[in-house]
Design a protein around this nucleic acid. Structure first.
Length: 593
RNA sequence: GGUGGCAUAGCUCAGCUGGAUAGAGCACCUGCCUUCUAAGCAGGCGGUCCUAGGUUCGAAUCCUAGUGCCAUCACCA
């Protein structure tokens, strides 16, 4: 039984014995550093049942607990707070129960219903940038956290592979590309296609100004520019299945997928299944037709199909254009249904998408409910804040985006620079060094992004590089490496049992044990709240405590063998917990650094 | 204008279902490497928790109103 639950029973018994009153619940909190004790009972809420002075009541309950409960070693009362010191034996028993477990913190019970997490939805006309990076890191981590909390999880992405934006790149490539390929240029496929998207925009802008010079209004010029008309014509041909256009579309999308794959691999994320909008929008249309029959949707005079959500406090929403073509909503309805068809064990889905689409997902979930799907009540939009630059929003066409591949490389470069200054890796091979720089650089980037609450927007200043000191990924990785160094030197048989030790825990040791005890709770909270930030902040607290212990208490140089054995085992368990916590954040830990 | 989100130290962020004197990191200042990795430790400086009301034993936290920033309200995605 959990410490709190045990104590709660005893406190209720105490109150009954002392005051002949029944408590509904007992309020606990961690004892603040400046007071003696491990756990604190707040007396104030009891006053509604027990009349009297809070401090005096606290004294009496404390006295009772000390005399009747073995766990309670001593107590003190400050105002209405009853601080209780827990016996060392409790913490030693706890430690023995977890110290050899490699998956400490992870739930062993598995739900039979799975959850699908979507955490990337790129367009295939340009490379991934910092905004996608936040999306991907967040979603990957939430998927891993859900797994750790006992869920079966499928990771997926939705690739927006059709539409006018792709035709723009295709058209520009046809016009100016001279048959260039990733092989002929040495460029990553997504970069090559992205370049032509920019080329299109240049040509488009040029034609607009030419038309304006000829006397057209800006509005007309934007509509009449020949390249745009041609791109639109291309889209119509694509939808009609024109062989050449479809072939070109397949080729260029193929280049982009290869490029994306490389970036995902560099980031260290993967997917169990990819979905493509070109393959799901038709299913969406089917269900629009279905919904028309059942009255979920209605048709306007011009032929467009809508869903009336005014009774739910929203507006009318279009689900099919008057020309019968699909909109975004159509595709998303189709994709959701397709996923449940493919994975019947899925009972809910998480969509990792920026908060600019809050309204869209509110509507999507509502429509799926109206269509009568029982899984529709378990849909969650993991909405996150934008990543802004000091100059404002990132815009690909204005060249103000922070490219994902470049960013990852820069982080590794910074790690290399710092490592060289510190000069601790002389005996490493070039290959080992390179892999370590990547681990550290990525660790810095991922931690930087994941430690902030998903809801909040992030301001990223490319000129001020991400820190490697303080509350950062490398700081935590460094602590892990230190622990591994101790383990290498100790040569300790890890199977020691510590219950036999007659020992007095030091404050720093007890603090670590208390912190370790929290880890499974933190995992569950993070899963419920879909927040990797909780894991990141927990890990930082744990690591701060460990470093304080490390620097103030001798481990290998302990006075007795018993103490040494305990401290080595404690260090090992902290290391394992760091590894597990960082694992669900998608961050690697190094053996040395 | 309607709706939603955010607002805590110079900067970046914590602060769990309301609880003790609001916490970290960066930056700035002081100490600590011939003992387990100084990407570290120990300490100092730094606050109108956006504003005004309200709820109560008690509010950064909950409620109301206002201010500021962001997003959204398209036959765009």
């Amino acid at each position: 039984m959990k410490l709190q639950d045990t104590l709660e029973l005893h406190v209720k018994t105490a109150v009954k014995a002392l005051f002949q009153s029944e408590l509904e619940s007992v309020e606990f909190q961690a004892t603040r550093k400046e007071f003696a004790g491990d756990i604190t009972i707040v007396v104030f809420p009891m006053l509604s049942v027990v009349k009297g002075n809070p401090a005096a009541i606290g004294e009496q309950i404390g006295e009772y607990l000390q005399n009747n409960v073995d766990l309670v070693k001593s107590f003190n009362v400050v105002k209405g707070f009853l601080n209780i010191e827990i016996a060392d034996s409790y913490y030693i028993n706890f430690f023995n129960s977890i110290k050899d477990s490699e998956d400490y913190g992870f739930s062993k019970n598995k739900d039979d219903k799975a959850v699908m997490v979507e955490y990337s939805s790129p367009n295939t006309n340009k490379p991934l940038h910092l905004g996608h990076v936040r999306n991907v890191l967040l979603g990957y981590s939430v998927a891993e956290i859900l797994k750790a909390s006992g869920k079966n999880v499928y990771k997926t992405q939705i690739i927006n592979d059709r539409g006018i934006h792709i035709c723009k790149s295709m058209l520009a490539w046809k016009r100016f590309g001279n048959g260039e390929t990733p092989e002929s240029t040495g460029l990553k496929g997504d970069k090559l296609v992205g370049n032509y998207y920019v080329e299109f925009d240049k040509a488009y802008k040029k034609e607009i100004s030419e038309l304006i010079a000829k006397g057209q209004s800006e509005e007309d010029a934007k509509k009449n520019a020949p390249v745009l008309l041609e791109a639109q014509e291309m889209l119509r041909k694509w939808e009609a299945g024109d062989k050449d256009i479809v072939a070109l579309w397949e080729t260029m999308n193929g280049w982009v997928y290869d490029g994306f794959e490389e970036t995902y691999k560099a980031i260290g994320v993967d997917f169990d299944k990819n979905y493509y909008e070109s393959q799901t929008y038709l299913l969406g249309k089917e269900f629009i037709a279905e919904g028309l029959k059942t009255g979920v949707f209605f048709k306007k005079n011009d032929g467009s199909v809508w869903c009336d959500l005014t009774e739910d406090g929203l507006d009318e929403k279009i689900v099919l254009r008057s020309d019968g073509t699909a909109v975004y909503m159509t595709q998303d309805i189709g994709t959701a249904i397709q996923r449940i068809k493919d994975y019947p064990d899925v009972g809910g889905m998480v969509y990792t998408v920026g908060n600019e689409q809050d309204y869209h997902f509110k509507v999507l979930f509502l429509i799926l409910k109206k269509l009568g799907f029982d899984w529709a009540k378990n849909l969650f939009h993991l909405s996150y804040g934008m990543v802004d630059l000091p100059s404002g929003k990132m815009k690909s066409r204005e060249g103000t985006v922070v490219d994902a591949d470049d960013l990852i490389q820069e982080m590794a470069d910074t790690a290399e620079e710092i490592s060289k200054e510190l000069g601790k890796l002389e005996d490493y091979s070039e290959e080992e060094k390179k892999s370590l720089y990547k681990i550290i650089g990525l660790g810095a980037l991922k931690y930087y992004i994941l430690k902030v609450d998903p809801k909040k927007r992030i301001l990223f200043d490319p000129k001020e590089s991400i820190d490697f000191q303080g509350n950062t990924g490398p700081f935590i990785q460094y602590t892990y490496a230190r622990i591994q160094s101790i383990l290498r030197k100790s040569n300790q048989d890890s199977s020691v049992t510590l219950s036999q030790f007659e020992m007095q825990l030091q404050d720093k040791e007890k603090q670590l044990l208390k912190q370790l005890e929290q880890f499974p709770v933190v995992i569950q909270n993070a899963a419920e709240q879909h927040s990797p930030a909780l894991i990141a902040n927990y890990t930082y607290d744990l690591v701060k405590d460990f470093n304080s212990f490390y620097q103030n208490v001798p481990i290998l140089g302990a006075d007795t063998e018993h103490e040494k054995a305990f401290r080595v085992a404690l260090s090992k368990t902290v290391g394992q917990t760091i590894k597990n916590a960082f694992g669900v954040l998608g961050i690697d830990v190094p053996e040395r650094m």
